[in-house]
Design a protein around this nucleic acid. Structure first.
Lengths: 244, 244
DNA sequence: ATAAAATAGTGTTATAAATACACTAATAAT
DNA sequence: ATTATTAGTGTATTTATAACACTATTTTAT
């Protein structure tokens, strides 16, 4: 690659711009949502778009993504992974733009912290009911992000990143059922999650009480293991997308 | 992302350069090789590097990758997939360079067509015995590419892209062993591949005869199934890398 | 004709993982 | 005491993977 750098005078040639786009997911009422911003200028004025911005000369791609994320949500220290780089020629009518897309997962209990801090419109959309038209090629990016998320949920601890700091095993099971679209066996799920040994007990009981029943046992992710260890929920199913 | 484009005068700000790097794999003597080019200038003069070059304003990323590939090997119409985008600030000492890395798989029977066409040194290296020092962060890119290839091998038909048009089951098994780095059971492999039902028999016998033994049964990939159907070779193993 | 070499498989068992479902236990409100 | 609720455990069945012994076919060399 850099092989050719000597032949070019970097300042003389017109070159593509680089942006990062961050597809920010969270759970609201146990349902997967994504953050979109509404455009106020040409092109795609009024359309909803994935938040993003130009990469500065002195920041890495991931740093740029974290900066964007914090600008939009005020949230730091979240799960972030690179999704794909979109570089078709005509994707932005103004100029040649290459976008490095990232996925961010924001915890259910912190997702409401800011959102919509500046003057422009920012909203969480359920992934089931997205706006019918998105700006640029953002519908494609979003579809790709959702596919990646869905497939990775099955063989990583990604789902934990979406849950609040403290949660019960049955809540975790509920997330899996939501995303996989099928009922799971309670006993087997307990065993699976215990065997993985990724959680630690929280001894404080949840304050909001139900009418009856044994109190909910809360757990939190063990910091030392959550990211390095895999939680493979299912081997069996076909998975066509595979985070290629 | 493009949200901020209006605020910037694109010509006035210094911005990162974008290159594509193409990690080109092939099989030579049943062993996985990768194509590297030797640098003739500072920095990393004399070091081997992954071939690549700048993205032109009027070509997509994939097109740029295909162009690089053809320049280096003379080969077209090969399997190509985006690997990852590397964008750390200091990775090129000359200027800020963001590299979109691709993986290309070149069939064993066409890989020798050109290579080393221009004056500069180009060589296939076995992935087991790579140069000890590569230019830039190319060792990291290469390691990532090999990891991706290895993990995708287990749940896709990718390996078939490396084989010649016609091949025997044992040759296919050999590829799997090469890339996975372990011996596989012959009987189980036969069963697995037959069960997948992705191959069709080739009735022409291979012309070059061995000293002894039953003639090699050749197969080819069934066009109607190869890409759509998955060939899941193994479920069980831990796979840390997982394609992005 | 027979032996050796190579490919192309099949059969069988052992181990491990996933699944289904019955069952026990604890706790708090009623 | 009863009941609803969470939180598990026990166990048998099914399925997948792995290990390895075994048979069969076709060719060349002797």
């Amino acid at each position: 690659m850099q092989e050719q750098a000597e032949r070019y005078d970097v300042t003389r040639y017109e070159r593509p711009s680089v942006t990062v786009d961050v597809v920010i997911f969270t759970l609201i009422h146990q349902e997967l949502h994504v953050l979109l911003v509404q455009r106020r200028n040409w092109p795609f004025e009024g359309c909803w778009a994935i938040p993003g911005g130009f990469v500065d000369m002195d920041e890495s791609l991931e740093w740029a993504a974290r900066r964007e994320l914090e600008e939009e949500t005020g949230v730091r220290d979240v799960y972030l992974e690179q999704l794909y780089t979109f570089g078709e020629v005509g994707r932005d009518p103004r100029t040649r733009v290459i976008s490095v897309a990232y996925i961010a997962l924001v915890r259910a209990d912190v997702q409401q912290i800011r959102v919509s801090e500046e003057s422009h419109a920012v909203r969480w959309f359920p992934v089931r009911t997205l706006p019918e038209q998105l700006a640029f090629d953002h519908a494609q990016i979003l579809a790709y992000a959702i596919g990646r998320l869905r497939s990775k949920l099955e063989y990583t601890t990604l789902a934990f990143q979406l849950l609040p700091e403290q949660f019960s095993i049955l809540e975790l099971k509920h997330i899996y059922e939501q995303i996989l679209g099928e009922k799971l066996d309670k006993g087997n799920f307990y065993r699976k999650i215990k065997e993985a040994d990724l959680l630690e007990e929280v001894h404080v009981v949840r304050e909001e009480r139900k009418a009856r029943g044994r109190p909910t046992q809360l757990w939190r992710v063990r910091r030392d293991r959550a990211l390095e260890k895999q939680f493979v929920f299912r081997w069996r199913e076909d998975r066509l997308e595979r985070g290629g």
